[in-house]
Design a protein around this nucleic acid. Structure first.
Lengths: 336, 336
DNA sequence: TTGTAGGCGTTATCAG
DNA sequence: CTGATAACGCCTACAA
């Protein structure tokens, strides 16, 4: 492995001088600087980040932990974060907890052992891992929650205003005259209503619209479960006249459920979703949805990570390709 | 930072003994083992992976580098790999090269500096970074290409049989009687036909079906470009009667283009795609597509990585929750 | 079965 | 402006 010592030797300087050529080049005499850079190029030396991490006590890596990566929101978010981190010295460590607190903790441990400098986490419900997150914070990891935040957690967080979004959706449905409204939603642990489901219930109560017990069911986060539950709902003596899909994975199953029941949207039943997939706009009819500002969320996450993380300026020298867009303003010269 | 020394001190043993309690517990006397484990728990000690990496010369991290993360195939693949890596000691480092060889190399350097033990890469076209990949291989990184492989590259690779898939698609279309067939596809650098596009051309030639020059256009990988190109195609004096969408991002734009042109599928025009998005099956009519075995690809990638990578057995002690599925076989006892 | 010593490549500190 | 030295925490010999 070619290390800084080899470079120093070749340039005829001490290791510390050679390192300075990289980290504080302005402090070197031009002649030496040139010689060292030359040696670096000849040996194509690349600093060992693991050694650096050991010495500094932390890496420049950012953990990204979500319950599920297929879920459109998480997938889009990963993309947003990944693209924006591209132009920083940080690297993204990806893991998913499959909606299981045990796996979440398992991954937190792995990240922690890796000495990540920041963690972006969509925490699972319940406060089971809050203690561990607090410990990580104490050790200097910057932690930011996304989409949901644990009760009493002291971390930064950024997320959709879920309450406002639910209200928006219910306004839409009630204005159309719906009262038999069912929601399909995120899983809940031990029978407790969770997240958006809870807000849905509260908001319905606030409007004085009852939610029949048969409309409520604890179902897990999956397309298949959503399908089954949809069929169940549509088969009831008093089926809902509108479905409000609160999670990103369920919509596909719901849509299929409606079709297989021989019903049509919106004639037989209204369908409202959290709009997290481009395809929903291609359906006929298009599916009404509530849009999440994923781009802004991603941008904020990365900005906060950068702000709260010690990172040397990375001399990224990138030549971006121009793109020729032909719209017709160019033609062969006259007379040819 | 609580390290193995602290643990050793607390347990009243030497550091190496303490370490052995973790790495080779069977070699310790039960009494000592207990004392050490106790100390580990009390201090909640966690090994520093950066130190380990420095000492060993490599981490247990796996780089994952694709041109684009939104593209359904890449997104699904990331998910597949991520889930399967969950049960190994490896961590996934994610990066995307945005279809730019410069960015690809940039990320390769970052990965290399991180001393990853394996790299899963969907390489960009051209052989610009082959030299660098070879260097990484020499340094001991296991490299496996996915979806595409560089000419003359010595690396393992796993991918769809693109030729067979294209043939399958064209068989389908020609059997229906189509001869005016256009493809929408991956970007090509410097006017060279690339990847599937090339195969499409070859396969059309083999069948003696001409591809009008106006059907050919170098367009980049994006939904918007696909939309524009679709409108262009449909506006031609002799428009295609079938569109073959070869990439995962374009379909959305093509679909919209067809609709905005006031045409219907399949009456006015046939549409065939690489089936990489669950939503295509929800459309009316459903969109014919060629399915990629993403799951198997992901499985293979992970298997190969594990096989070619030195990894200690990780004592993962996970309690997975059972799930109650109510199908009706349980009821209250008789007589109540 | 247990303990000791050296070094992985880097950065921080101190000396010249 | 430049060079020497120690330490980060771990692993691998080897010694007891």
């Amino acid at each position: 492995m070619t290390n800084i010592k080899a470079v120093a030797k070749r340039a005829g300087v001490s290791p510390s001088t050679a390192k300075r050529a990289i980290n504080e080049p302005e402090k070197l005499s031009p002649a030496l600087l040139h010689r060292v850079l030359q040696a670096i190029k000849e040996l194509d030396y690349e600093p060992d980040l693991t050694a650096r991490a050991l010495r500094q006590g932390h890496t420049l890596n950012v953990g990204f932990l979500v319950p599920d990566l297929v879920e459109p929101f998480s997938a889009q978010l990963a993309q947003e974060v990944s693209v924006r981190l591209q132009h920083t010295p940080h690297i993204l460590l990806l893991a998913n907890s499959s909606h299981q607190p045990d796996l979440e903790r398992h991954n937190l441990k792995r990240f922690s052992g890796q000495r990540i400098s920041a963690l972006i986490i969509r925490p699972s419900y319940g406060s089971g891992n809050l203690d561990y997150l607090l410990k990580m914070k104490d050790k200097g990891t910057y932690i930011i929650e996304v989409d949901h935040h644990l009760p009493d957690s002291p971390f930064d967080h950024v997320m959709l205003d879920h309450e406002q979004a639910i209200r928006l959706g219910l306004d839409h449905l009630t204005a159309l005259g719906h009262t038999r409204i069912a929601c399909l939603s995120t899983p809940s642990r031990e029978g407790l209503l969770a997240g958006r489901t809870l807000m849905f219930e509260r908001e319905m109560a606030a409007r004085g619209i009852p939610v029949p017990p048969l409309y409520r069911e604890i179902n897990r986060h999956s397309t298949e479960d959503a399908y089954r539950f949809t069929r169940h709902l549509l088969g009831l003596p008093d089926p809902p006249t509108a479905l409000f899909v609160l999670g990103g994975l369920e919509l596909l199953g719901v849509h299929q459920g409606i079709q297989d029941a021989g019903l049509s949207v919106p004639g037989d039943i209204s369908l409202l979703a959290f709009d997290e997939d481009a395809w929903t706009s291609r359906m006929k009819p298009g599916i009404d949805g509530i849009e999440q500002p994923v781009g802004m969320i991603g941008e904020t996450l990365v900005r906060q990570v950068l702000k709260n993380t010690p990172a040397p300026v990375e001399p990224l020298q990138l030549k971006l390709p121009g793109r020729l867009i032909q719209r017709g303003s160019c033609a062969p010269p006259r007379g040819r």
